[in-house]
Nucleic acid binder design. Sequence first.
DNA 1: GTGTTATACTCAACTTGTTGAATATGACAC
DNA 2: GTGTCATATTCAACAAGTTGAGTATAACAC
Lengths: 184, 184
Amino acid sequence: MSLKHGLLGLLNYGSMTGYELDKIFRDSLSFFWQAKTSQIYRELDTMECHGWLTSERIIQNDKPNKRVYTITDSGKEELGNWLSMPESDIANAMRVKSAFLMRVFFAGETSTEQSLEMLRTYREKCMEASKGMSAAYDAISKYRTVVGNDEKSKYWRIAALYGDAFIHAGLTWADKAIAVLEEK
Amino acid sequence: MSLKHGLLGLLNYGSMTGYELDKIFRDSLSFFWQAKTSQIYRELDTMECHGWLTSERIIQNDKPNKRVYTITDSGKEELGNWLSMPESDIANAMRVKSAFLMRVFFAGETSTEQSLEMLRTYREKCMEASKGMSAAYDAISKYRTVVGNDEKSKYWRIAALYGDAFIHAGLTWADKAIAVLEEK
DNA sequence: GTGTTATACTCAACTTGTTGAATATGACAC
DNA sequence: GTGTCATATTCAACAAGTTGAGTATAACAC
């Protein structure tokens, strides 16, 4: 249900269109949650049916018409419940689901050279992601001025710190793994 | 498609029942891929339809009858293709999907005390997971003797190292995050 | 006037994953 | 003879996520 709650969280900052929500997801939440445009619109529909949102059609002359979504009291309540829900998805948070690691696990079926190649590619992706983090921090600064709340942006920074920590862990792991395979 | 490939990887070690596959998933792959029993049986069905597996019904006297699955040449080919498939899910591997981090991101809506509570719980789960890793290493030793291949178990260790690295990163992140919230 | 980009949204088919119950056998303990 | 555990599998309904194409408007540059 977390996509729904992510959307509620964003709409709690202010009313928005599906298009804007989609962009913010890509810009800033995509590090820890990804959603396709089509899924976002679908979820907005069902959330409106639940009564968590209302929507209003805005006629525009310079651009295509749009639909602006606004969170309702019932939506705010739902968001609050989700935020204070304990345990269950903290346990969930520990869960990794990685096709890549599954490949590492079974890489004994291929050659050492191929496995090293894979790990080196992973290492490079970590380096790229590491550079990309500055964009995330930029996005945080940008949206902080929009939302105008430093207390909230503190939590965004904490989430970004998670990104840094895990990218760094990925790098050092890759180095260690490469070393294990290279030793003879 | 990774559950299918995980099952192929295990069946490549030797023929097994759905029940055994389910247990091995829980024992050793669950760190990076989780699947429900019912899903495993469903996937085995569709994989047999693809011709990646054959199955044989074994009549037992002391226990309920069982169905033993065996990987076919076509299945081995599929496994090989998946293992040498580049890029695509290395990029995927970088992706985190965490409802917990989403909650951190929006935790500004709740009190600092509640947020700290959440982070402390996370920290504890990391500690638990850290202890649980030794069980994973035990499982590796146990299955190494079953599979009888040290070269392969090398990769299992590498996967386990990933677990260690990420649990450790989670711990230090949680400490940092708690420090950020506690500073006034 | 042509191509590109940004805006704005919709749809359908499909695969994957979750929930949770249901069924059945035989061993072993008390 | 009752209860529990380990073995072994099946089913159905539902929720979530993916793929990929399709539709449309208007600004801006060249």
